[in-house]
């Protein structure tokens, strides 16, 4: 039997990669995908803890997290569509009318 630590570590790395991606990429869609990566990392952590403790709460949490993720993505993408319709761009750095 493997230690849950290793799964956890994979989750951590996925989360981290998501963060790295979020900070370095400029395409809005990619940013949303990075958030997906982060959520999955968290999910993996949850499930591994679940396995460790034998409680189901973690799995339930992951289930809801998936729903949340999908809702966020749906809303996010609809806003992306709105943005694209307005400015024909997906480059997040070009969305800077609002500043100081």
């Amino acid at each position: 039997m493997l230690a849950a630590d290793q799964y956890l570590m994979v989750g951590v790395v996925l989360f981290g990669i998501g963060v790295i991606g979020f900070l370095t990429r400029r395409n809005v869609v990619v940013l949303l995908m990075c958030i997906e990566l982060m959520i999955n990392g968290a999910g993996l952590a949850f499930v591994s803890f679940c396995r460790q403790t034998g409680s189901l709460e973690g799995q339930v949490f992951v289930l809801f997290a998936m729903v949340i993720a999908s809702v966020e993505i749906a809303v996010g993408l609809s806003i992306v569509l709105l943005v694209f319709r307005n400015r024909a761009t997906l480059d997040v750095d070009e969305m800077e009318v609002l500043k100081w």
Partner: peptide
């Protein structure tokens, strides 16, 4: 310094959070 930080760039904001 505050206006300089408030660049209007999302990733910049995320950077601060991290």
């Amino acid at each position: 310094i505050v206006p300089r930080l408030q660049t209007g760039l999302v990733r910049w904001y995320a950077l601060f959070m991290v």
